[in-house]
Amino acid sequence: MENFVDQIKALSRRIQKIKDNIQTEEATKTSVMLPFFQILGYDIFNPEEFVPEFTADVGIKKGEKVDYAILQDGKPVILIEAKSIQDILTKHDSQLFRYFGTTTAKFAILTNGIIYRFFTDLDEQNKMDATPFFEFNLFDIKDHQLIELSKFHKDKFNIENINTTAAELRYTNEIKKFLRTQWDIPSDEFVSYILSEVYSGKKTKQIIEKFNGIVKKSFKEFVNDMLNDKLQSALANTKEQDLTVAETAVSQVAVEPEQQEVVTTAEEIEGYITVKVLLQEIIAPDRIHYRDNLSYFNILIDNSIRKWVCRLYLNNNNKTITFNDENNTSVKISSVSDILTYKEKISEVAKRFL
C-alpha cells in the first residue's frame, strides 16, 4: 500500500508540471491516463487485460467504441471513457451512459486524467447511475480516498467487495457535499429544520431569514469547537515530546554569540504542533519540521528550506503568519490558536510539495 501511495503522489507531481503542455485527448491518454492504470497494476500492453478502442455496440448502432476496457476472464468489468485534460467532465456523462448498458461491465470510469469519476448501477440494475459513487482527484489527494482507489488495483479488485461499499461511499459524499453547501449558504429548509428543534414560535419567512445568520454562525462555531478539542488533545499528547526535542536542539547549538541569541519558545513549538495537526490528513507528521531563526520561526516539509509552508513571527506584540504562496501573504494573529482558522490556506500551500 505504501508503494502504491508513493506512486500515485509521484504521478500527481509529474502531471502538475506537464499539464500545460498537454493539449489533446491522445496526449492526455499517453502522458497521464496510461501511467495511472499501470500504477493500478494493469498491463496496458496486454490486449487480454487492457483493451483500447473496445467495441460497445449501442442499439442499432454498430462499431461504437469506448476508449478502454479492463477485462477479467475475457469479459469487460470496467469501461473507461477518456477526455482531454482540458475538458470539463460533466458534458460527457451521457456518452459513457450509452456504453454501460451494452456490456457486462459493472463499473465505468469517466476521466480527464486528473479527475476520475467511478460509476456503477446502484439505482437500477444494468443502467449506469447519473451520480458517481466515488471521485478521485489527483490534484487533491486525500488518504481515505487512496484506500478506496486501491480497491481497483488489479491484485485487490473484487466486484462484490466494491459493491458493498459503493452505496455508502456515494451517499457519504452526497451528505458531505450537502453539508458543505449549508456551511457556506444555509438554505431556508435547513434553517427551518434546525428551528424545529430549538424554536417554539411560528417559523415565518421573516423568522427564517433572521435565524439564517445565527444558524450559520452556530454551525461554524460548533465545527471550530470540535477542531479545538481535537487539537488540544493532540497538543497534550505531543507537546511534551516536541518540547524535549526543541530543548535538545537548542542545547546543541554551537556556542557562537549570534547563534546563542536564537531561542525557541514554547509558543513557537505550539505553533509548530498546531500546523502538524492541521496537515495530518494530507501529509505524515514526521515529514514536517521546523527551523528557528532570529526573526521568524520556519515550518518546513522534509526539512527542506525550499519547502517552507509558513513562517511564524511570534517574538513581539505584532504576531503574524506568512504563507509560502505567490505573494508571500502575511496576516496578523492575536495568538497561536488563530492559526486554526487558516487550515485551508496551510493545506493549499503544503500540497504544492507533496
Rank of each mutant, 00 (worst) to 15 (best):
V5A: 14
K9H: 06
K9M: 11
K9Q: 07
A10H: 11
R14F: 13
K17N: 04
K19H: 04
Q23K: 14
T24H: 07
E25K: 01
K29H: 03
V32P: 08
F36D: 05
Q38H: 09
L40F: 03
L40Y: 03
Y42G: 00
E48F: 14
E53T: 07
F54R: 00
K65S: 03
V66E: 11
D67P: 00
I70P: 02
I70K: 02
L71N: 05
D73A: 08
D73V: 07
G74R: 09
K75R: 13
P76Q: 04
A82F: 11
S84I: 12
K91E: 09
D93M: 12
F97Q: 03
Y99R: 02
F100P: 03
T102V: 04
I109C: 00
L110W: 01
I115M: 07
D123R: 02
Q125D: 12
K127T: 03
K127R: 05
T131V: 07
T131K: 00
E135Y: 01
L138K: 00
D140C: 06
H144G: 04
L146Y: 00
E148R: 12
E148Y: 08
K156L: 10
N163V: 05
T164N: 08
T165Y: 10
A166W: 14
E168K: 14
K177G: 09
K177R: 13
K177P: 06
Q182S: 01
D184R: 10
F190W: 06
F190M: 02
Y193V: 05
S200M: 04
G201A: 07
T204S: 02
K205V: 04
I208A: 05
K210Y: 11
F211K: 06
G213T: 03
V215F: 06
S218R: 02
K220A: 10
E221D: 04
E221R: 13
V223G: 12
M226I: 08
M226R: 12
N228F: 02
L231Y: 12
L235F: 09
A236D: 14
N237S: 12
T244S: 15
T244V: 12
T244I: 15
V245E: 15
V245N: 13
A246S: 06
A249D: 15
Q252F: 12
A254V: 11
V255K: 05
V255S: 11
P257R: 09
V262I: 15
V263W: 08
T264L: 11
E267K: 07
E270N: 13
K276L: 11
L279Q: 04
Q280L: 04
Q280W: 07
Q280D: 13
A284Q: 13
D286P: 02
D286V: 05
I288F: 02
H289V: 01
R291K: 07
R291I: 09
D292Q: 11
L294M: 03
S295D: 14
I299F: 09
K307V: 06
W308G: 05
R311W: 09
N318L: 10
N318G: 08
N318C: 10
F323L: 03
F323W: 08
N324P: 09
E326R: 08
E326L: 15
N328V: 06
S330M: 10
K332I: 10
K332Y: 14
T341Y: 15
V349C: 07
